[in-house]
Amino acid sequence: MRVVIAEDNVLLSAGLELLLGTKGIDVAAIVTDAEGLMEAVERHRPDAVIADVRLPPTFRDEGIRAALAIRQAHRGLPVLVLSQYVEKVYARELLSDGSGGVGYLLKDRVSRVGEFVDDLRRVADGGTVMDPEVIAQLMAGGNAVDALTNREREVLALMAQGLGNTEIGKRLFVTDNAVHKHVGNIFSKLGLPPSDGGHRRVLAVLTFLDSAR
């Protein structure tokens, strides 16, 4: 797998390269701003992009905007956005195009190398990965999830973190079948169509994000 990294802090980009290297992930380019990111993506056609939220020149939310622009220009190119803090609005903006291949994680998570690389691969495969902190913020505020049982909420939270049914089952010590049932309930309670497909999982998370009020 080849990735392009957009990170203006040398300390962090060097650390990321080192870390990805140990897992056999190739860093095609490291850029320090959104413009450079666009060019690097054009040139290297990576499998995924890892972008910091704060990038020059204003160090605000350039990374979010760059991620959205790239996904528009390169039909759903997987983007994993890293930040030192997470905000629900950013999560929702990143998911707003409804297609998968999006991740939004605290930089803290990077140091759990194995889990981080799993997350990156999930994003590259078109999955959706939300930081547990985003999920926690949503659960703290949420009315929409009131309709869900406790177990369904747990399943939804893990789903939002990008886990598949089997992994969810393992974490919650239940069978695949039980998870499947919970997922079905979640979809119907959130008013999502019963047709299958990976997109529905993204939509579930998005609905979750949208309706956390």
């Binding site: 802090n9 300390l11 650390g15 990321l16 870390l19 030192q84 930089k107 803290d108 990077v110 140091s111």
Partner: peptide, 14 residues
């Protein structure tokens, strides 16, 4: 500080 902590954590993780 935050960036340094992340960098330290990354290395410890590796």
């Amino acid at each position: 500080t935050q960036a340094r902590l992340v960098a330290i954590a990354m290395r410890l993780g590796v």
